[in-house]
Amino acid sequence: MSWITKTLTSSIGRKLIMSLTGLFLCTFLVVHLVGNLQLFKHDGGAAFNAYSHFMGTNPVIRTIEWGLVLGFGFHIYEAFALTRRNKAARGHGYAQWKAEQNSEWTSRNMGILGSIILIFLIVHLYNFFWRARFGGLEKMGGDNPEYRDYDNLYMAVVSSFHIWWYVLLYVAAQISLGYHLWHGFRSGFQTLGLNHRKYMPLIKYAGYVFAVVVSAGFAAMPLYFFLFTNDLGELALNAPTFVHTVASAF
């Protein structure tokens, strides 16, 4: 083995990969969340679809996408590798184990939380990403030449967000993500050795805020559509006129 593989397969090396990929995925979450905020624009999906079109076709984004795939891949692979190693390190278990008295539940259950997120990720990717990338979505159509050839991902999202179990899965996954980040954010810094008496409290609280904002932001989307809109994505009450106009085009 070369020194690189030795380093990266050592206990700290694997943690390093977890940390770097994890923090990288955090940046992805930010981008994804900000982009998805387009969903809340009451324009019948025009802005959202334009955004998703851009994301699906821009060569830079497509390149970064590979990084994302690798990021997820390594994060998940290392998670399994570490879990296996760590389980083996214990060997014989305890008859009594009161870890709740010395540590946070989230910190001890990153694997479970991550697994829930992984299941969600598969469904999510199949439902939206796969269909957007490899066909299966209707075009927006309509009069606006700027929009009409875009895939109407907006509509796919909106209709999905009216299926109760789908919304439930989403919300559960976002709660898991929140807890995952609650520990993961600061843990990533700790693994990189970025722990300083002055800054660690800051990192810790920034992590908590990040976890809450990101997970609440993502969870707000299905909940919003499920609770407040009809199956076209219109606001059930007091929907502005232009929304009606755009919607009636379908």
Binding site: S11, R14, K15, R85, A89, R186
Partner: peptide
């Protein structure tokens, strides 16, 4: 690592 200890996951116990 050779001794077979696990890897730290920053739990803090």
């Amino acid at each position: 690592d050779k001794e077979g200890f696990g890897a730290c996951t920053n739990i803090g116990s």
